[in-house]
Write a protein that binds this DNA or RNA. Structure first.
Lengths: 161, 161
DNA sequence: TATTGTTATACTCTATAACTATA
DNA sequence: TATAGTTATAGAGTATAACAATA
């Protein structure tokens, strides 16, 4: 399994110019795309209690980390379009997991903030919600987990471009 | 950035028992889940020409790699339920990208095979379809690409559990 | 005019339940 | 009875276009 790794790393090291990488990048991109989509599919299926959708929980979690945000700002952080965020917020509002207040100076804007009930769900979820993936990670060898952990920041940067 | 890596690897090596890893696994699982879902969302938005859905292309690609398969077998490989695969195959059949033949001995089964047109699309797509991700990968340093490439097999194994 | 947010509408992907045909 | 596949139906998630309110 690790043969591919060293081959690839060696290849990159030998031809690190922007042109030489193109073909290898395309292959890495293809494999990464398929792996990420499949894993996302699995993760979507393994949602914990099911009462809260993944995008709702993700938005709620972002609100918990960043503090109050406008719908547009939250949409940008979540990398979805404003109309999609409208629906996510509506679902959270209906369950009283977030509150809405008018912006102090700009009456066009709204300020969405997580509620105590919402915060409780986020914290509870961070503890309980990782069942399947954590179980899967448990089956990995220590060096495989380390590989994932090492690649994680890169994976995160990819979504931020 | 690589500090986290060695820290994590060291931590795992020191406490490789199932109990000691639980907390670290949960954190890794949480971060990985969010990163994977966001990246999947980006990838979904960046689909190339748009005429073919991601799940259709993924199934087509699997047919190209594995050869002719029954709908149920293909569904299992793609990790979706048979009714979902029925719709994917129907879409591919309508575009003549796959063909359907009766199973030689079991008349309940069908055999789905990629067509020449389908194969052309898969090959063309492997070359052209990775625009955004390949571009993003281009912006990474060589050692970051190597990290991704190293973690890729682990990522793939996670979906296979 | 530009920006913020919403509504209306539609598409993709997936699931479960119930059905048909064959084994 | 059991298996392969389909149909019917539903739901989550997202997008674009058009609109209203405010700046």
């Amino acid at each position: 399994m690790l043969r591919d790794v060293s081959d690839a790393a060696g290849g990159s090291a030998l031809s690190s110019g922007p042109v030489g990488d193109t073909v290898e990048d395309a292959q890495l991109a293809s494999s990464l795309r398929i792996a990420v989509m499949r894993l996302a599919r699995r993760l979507r299926a393994e949602r914990s209690d099911g009462t809260l959708g993944l995008s709702q929980l993700s938005a709620l979690s972002t609100l918990e980390r960043h503090g109050p945000l406008s719908p547009t700002a939250l949409a940008e952080l979540e990398r979805i379009q404003p109309p999609s965020m409208t629906r996510v917020i509506a679902a959270l509002e209906e369950r009283r997991l977030v509150g809405r207040e008018p912006h102090p100076s700009d009456r066009r804007q709204a300020v969405i903030a997580i509620s105590d009930a919402g915060r409780q769900i986020v914290l509870e979820d961070r503890r309980r919600r990782q069942a399947w993936l954590a179980r899967s990670l448990d089956d990995l060898a220590a060096d495989e987990r380390a590989l994932l952990e090492a690649a994680l920041p890169v994976l995160e940067r990819l979504s931020e471009v």
